[in-house]
Nucleic acid binder design. Sequence first.
DNA 1: CTCAGAATCGGAATGATTCCGTTTTATTGT
DNA 2: ACAATAAAACGGAATCATTCCGATTCTGAG
Lengths: 141, 141
Amino acid sequence: MTVEEALRILGEKGYKSTGKREALLRLLAREDRYLTAKEALRLMHRDYPDLSFDTIYRNLALFHELGIVHMTEFDGERRYRLRCPIEGHHHHLICLSCGTTQEILACPLDAMWSQPDGFIIAGHKFEVYGYCRSCAEATAH
Amino acid sequence: MTVEEALRILGEKGYKSTGKREALLRLLAREDRYLTAKEALRLMHRDYPDLSFDTIYRNLALFHELGIVHMTEFDGERRYRLRCPIEGHHHHLICLSCGTTQEILACPLDAMWSQPDGFIIAGHKFEVYGYCRSCAEATAH
DNA sequence: CTCAGAATCGGAATGATTCCGTTTTATTGT
DNA sequence: ACAATAAAACGGAATCATTCCGATTCTGAG
């Protein structure tokens, strides 16, 4: 997903184009990792010192609803990142320290099974947590 | 994991045995599904009308630390359930409505790969969400 | 340029979780 | 059984993430 695609989707759905909304998308694209709302606010503070949490949360929720971002939740916080540019469904390794990801191209659901007995599947999550090389090296010192 | 095993672990580690702690373990065993702190408090209210949130949270965190319960987090809440009695590492289908689970005996990590490049794995999560038969039928009416 | 509705602000409200000073309780040694 | 000690529980306040809301500002359509 690129910023341009995201803006096209927003436009098609009738959402207005605002500086802050675009800046948040550009931030997500530039950082290319999972961000919490607090981090996003902090990183945008230089350009938009009056930005409110409400705007961050409202837009991240909107982006998620429109499939522009992925969301995951751990350590009591939600984290968002721009949807990957690669085609098709996949999963991630996630660095617990900085939020960067690596792709896992396989999906365990595809391979797995015989339908479960009477259970209606609505979604799934497969994530591998750990530390990316640069965070691992940083904490080793 | 049975209540007896859990009590043995607690005893070995020097934790005291209290009526509320045991009752919480028995509740987890009886319900046999993911419970939020609020649900646990509500379900214990009849027997312990003065039970405080602090006690629930403190004990659930302790149980988790000792490996007595599993924890997962979604919809902004942490949920706990007694560790399964079956042997070995596995995963779950989780009913979003009532928290009951079905076991998935395979683990995608076992099957999957060539070690990721420079990434140190600390943990992983594979969960399938949906609705169990009885919740699906209940909402259909 | 005007207008309506969308977006934002800022501060309050909510909900989950944690903290803390005080009181109660379980365990250990006598 | 009794006293001492430390863990556990209480309950209410504090914290943290997230959401809500009334008032204000901005975008896009006409």
